[in-house]
Amino acid sequence: MKNDEFIVVRLEEVHRESGDTTTLTIPYKLNSKPGQFVMLWLPGKGEKPISISGEKEGKFQVSVCAVGPFSEAVSKLKKGDKIGFRGPFGTHFKIPKDSTSLAMVGGGYGSAPLSYLAEEATAQGKKVYFIEGARTKARLLFTERMKQAGAEVLLCTDDGSEGPKCYSPDVLKTVLETHKIDKVFTCGPEIMMKKVAELSKEAKIRCEVSMERYMKCGIGICGQCCVDDIGLCLCTNGPIIPGDLALEIKEFGSYHRDSTGKKV
């Protein structure tokens, strides 16, 4: 019988990134694809959906941004501490075989799964424009990692402390106008992703977004992550969905539901 039991292992490495983010290296061969997530479990502290931010050589990584009780507990973990997970769950980003140039637009911890994708793409010989925006320079994530992977990194900040003072969709707009891009990928704040999906649609370029909703089970049972009006269940049919489909989802960029199912 199908069974997604928790696997519990000891952390191999804990790395502090910029902007309250901590990357955990977990020694386990998940066979994940970029965009998929795990349900991460800290006994006594709860369980949350977290994207996979890398996998190679029998180890995978997750990068967690401290925003509340669970993620703060994660940020206090040390090498050798035990961590539980089940997964990988959900859909993944798809790099078209016939593509040569890809654009990725990340914001916040959304850059984590995109970094994983960018590494796979450059390894396949694709040209990657990695666009990242943040409030300020200190909150930009994974820029060194992306440069090392061979991506062309384009940064912008709300306060102009790094790159131009603008939002990441503005940078994408310029990239789309000046380069031939085969596909756009985005993960981050929903207002940003909506803008990216709209820009891609206008430019008639394929696009994939990572749409997150409150998740409890991760396996298509509890119904917590289903979106209006099409009833799509995002833990199994998402989080990675085509941009055009996202634009059909009424709540995309406007509201979501909390842990009780109440619209917020």
């Binding site: 298509g220 049972i221 509890c222 119904g223 917590q224 289903c226 979106v227 209006d228 009006d229 099409i230 009833g231 799509l232 269940c233 539901r257 199912g261």
Partner: peptide, 14 residues
């Protein structure tokens, strides 16, 4: 009850 039943849209989809 309790399976994919939080929202009306999800009930309709099932």
């Amino acid at each position: 009850s309790g399976i994919l039943g939080v929202t009306g849209a999800s009930l309709a989809a099932v």
